[in-house]
Nucleic acid binder design. Sequence first.
DNA 1: TCAATAGTGTCTTTGAGACACTATCCG
DNA 2: CGGATAGTGTCTCAAAGACACTATTGA
Lengths: 241, 241
Amino acid sequence: MEESAATYDPSRYERPSVTVDVVIFTLQNRELNVLLVNRRRWPYEGYWAIPGGFIEMNETLEQAARRELEEETGVRDVYLEQLCTFGDPGRDPRTRVISVTYIALVRADAQRLRASDESTDVSWFAVRALPSALAFDHDQILAYAISRLRSKLEYTTLAFQLLPEVFSILELKHIYEQILGEKLDKGNFYRKIKEAGILEETSLVREGRGRPTRLWRFSQDRGDKQFVFRWREDRINEKVE
Amino acid sequence: MEESAATYDPSRYERPSVTVDVVIFTLQNRELNVLLVNRRRWPYEGYWAIPGGFIEMNETLEQAARRELEEETGVRDVYLEQLCTFGDPGRDPRTRVISVTYIALVRADAQRLRASDESTDVSWFAVRALPSALAFDHDQILAYAISRLRSKLEYTTLAFQLLPEVFSILELKHIYEQILGEKLDKGNFYRKIKEAGILEETSLVREGRGRPTRLWRFSQDRGDKQFVFRWREDRINEKVE
DNA sequence: TCAATAGTGTCTTTGAGACACTATCCG
DNA sequence: CGGATAGTGTCTCAAAGACACTATTGA
């Protein structure tokens, strides 16, 4: 009961440790990728884990997440959203740890990203080829993060957070296909995205093997334009939304 | 970084307190209601707050939430879902407190509910007539809980968690209207809910002033029947989902 | 010319929404 | 009968989806 908080004596209750873990997504050669770090010590030595760390007493949870994110990728100003909090008693053998998890979406064109340098044991993994077992309950966290990303894609403009500044419409379609795991119709995709009015044409084109591609940017100044992209109906069985 | 966890020395980091707070919804005379407790001491003495309490070291977060829920309402086996975690440094003047919040949906027909007995300072409030200021950042939490409930209603069968065992279709419609804050068309509602195939007819009827009402129950054994109820499109501007 | 990629047009089917209608009770 | 509440039928219009077509490049 909240009332017991009023009589709270700090020494009376054991306090758990609290960490913030960040599932960092990006697009790497047209595949959805996620950043993992390799653990060097017990427990789960040699296992891959979601990057994270302990919160400091004077920062908000989101600030902690941004700090971790910047430490790992050198990137600021990315999309960040709270996912869920995990806190089963046995999940960390050392002590009781509560993990507040976040999802981050990072643009593919940030060069510092490739700083998966060899000295620190950090690496990108395609979500379709993840390590078979992760440290702690991180499999579970990651699976949940992916399903959440998938479902949010359908009714938000989240996908743009993964794209470079300019892109072609078929590239955008490709991301949707990647993340939704489903082939989409080209014509219908063009129609929908154009009608949504959230793209600005640029004067750029990209040359390729066939007809050159017109490039677009995500229009910042869209008023309250909405973009609901529901190709699928099976957003149902997720608990927690 | 996760690695620092490996070198973790419990005494090296200050640990925050962790509470679990539960926003408990129910239906009380056809209105969506929420349970609040009145605080008796500093801080926020006399203010209404969302019920909650400190986690114990050997229980999961969900167990803690169920424990709180049962303490407040005497109810078990209700729908429970994690909402979000709040942890700004200044939110509790006593010490750093991280609150993991949950939403609970409680059936209206559990009699023990009315045990808002006068001795403990606990009471139901219609969400349309909430106290003007709540303790801590609980206004924020509550507002978020309501918006989440609203949006989940559109694509899940959550509303059934609020209803008694048997109910009429128009009662169900009424809940949707309550929570979505919008008038729905009777005919269309009948059509949709019937097509969804998630209701079982009972032999019961309820007599009233006009034509008696057929009563239904939510069918447990629906296979993978889905129910997407999207009358509205403005599920967009919520962050975090 | 063809292969390759980009982009458009159009028909069909579905389902949301509006709204008028019928049904069954009490007095 | 009329008022009150429950429940059904049906028309319209917009949008999703299927799919065939045109466009522009390089070799």
